[in-house]
């Protein structure tokens, strides 16, 4: 871990000012669950930390237009279990609870969740080249062990994935990220928040270095009737997704009147596919429809060797998640197991 100084401002203005002094080497810290992890690995080496925890940003409140504002400092646990989230955005509740552990969810903040960095083994290990960590050194995951790596939207420079579960639901729900900077504020639609790697894989998102996330706003429509967050991983809990699918439907009888579909574990960003959504809307909620949407999502998907299986797995997971969302039956929930002892 690096040597650093520490400040704990009480308000946003002061936090932004503190950050602006040495904007490149100063980092904000909130939950700390990923930043301190990376600092101990020497992947992140800030010289100054600005602790945001005294800022008044932990509220979850309904806005006049019916949307729900998640304060950037609300913890993942408080968000998942918030009555408004549970009743109006159960997809988000499921996605958050599918991630990390109860302890980590009690620490990690909603703003911080967006800023999680990839779990790529090579990114974490200073002994191997990594364009995300040290631009220009090369991507070790290409041609290496890339079971957890991207099948969509990757580049020749980086095949890392974004590790968040929460963000997959936020992408599906069409959230908006509210941001403050020293001279004002701006809103960033969720889909524009994270980046694809291209030839700048060291940039995970479109925040400028002096900016601070203040809230994440959920639109009024929460798809609380038909939804599913399906996460597939190498153990039942406390593991990052190989593939995750956030599926949300609005149904009129058997017909799909609105649809949302986003994937985790497949790309450098939470992967929402609006073209696939368009293939669902107006169609009957049948396996055929779901398969067409799934095929659309993986169009152009490319495996890297150890992750080739994820292309087929993604298709199957999408179909299953859509089916679960349409039927909302307990029986198909992949995570509930009862033994068949007679």
């Amino acid at each position: 871990m690096n040597s650093f100084t520490y400040a704990r401002p009480d308000d946003i203005t002061e936090a932004l000012r503190e950050k602006s002094i040495q904007v490149e080497t100063t980092k904000f810290i909130a939950g700390g669950t990923n930043l301190l992890d990376l600092m101990k690995e020497n992947v992140e080496r800030p010289t100054r930390l600005i602790d945001l925890n005294r800022l008044p940003l932990s509220q979850i409140e309904e806005l006049p237009d019916g949307s729900l504002r998640l304060g950037a400092l609300a913890t993942n646990a408080d968000t998942a279990y918030h009555p408004e989230v549970q009743s109006r955005y159960p997809l988000l509740n499921q996605a958050i609870l599918a991630g990390a552990s109860p302890q980590l969810r009690n620490m990690a903040t909603d703003g911080g969740n967006l800023l999680q960095r990839t779990r790529c083994y090579y990114f974490y290990d200073l002994a191997t080249p990594c364009n995300k960590r040290e631009p220009g050194t090369g991507c070790s995951a290409i041609g290496g062990y890339n079971r957890i790596h991207a099948i969509l939207g990757a580049s020749a420079e980086c095949i890392a994935t974004h590790p968040s579960d929460m963000c997959v639901a936020l992408a599906a729900l069409g959230a908006t990220v509210q941001v403050s900077h020293p001279t004002g504020e701006r809103s960033i639609p969720f889909e524009d928040f994270h980046r694809l790697p291209g030839n700048t894989p060291h940039l995970d998102n479109n925040l400028t270095p002096g900016e601070l996330i203040t809230s994440i706003d959920l639109p009024a429509k929460g798809f609380e009737k038909n939804f599913s967050y399906l996460k597939l991983r190498d153990r039942s809990s406390y593991a990052f997704a190989l593939i995750s699918v956030a599926a949300a439907l609005e149904l009129d009888g058997d017909r799909i009147t609105d649809a949302r579909l986003a994937l985790g574990g497949v790309a450098h960003k939470p992967w929402r596919d609006q073209e696939a959504e368009a293939l669902l809307i107006g169609q009957p909620a049948t396996s055929d429809t779901f398969r067409r949407a799934a095929a659309k999502v993986v169009e152009g998907a490319q495996g890297q060797g150890s992750n080739d299986f994820k292309i087929e797995l993604a298709k199957r997971a999408i179909v299953r998640a859509l089916k679960q969302a349409a039927e909302m039956s307990e029986e198909v929930n992949v995570n509930v197991f009862q033994n068949s002892n007679p």
């Binding site: 191997t128 039942s236 809990s237 406390y238 593991a239």
Partner: peptide, 17 residues
């Protein structure tokens, strides 16, 4: 080099398993 040299990527069962 072993690439999954930590407890997050070297999987052993958790209680739910």
């Amino acid at each position: 080099r072993y690439m999954n040299h930590n407890y997050a990527e070297y999987h052993i069962p958790v209680n739910a398993d």
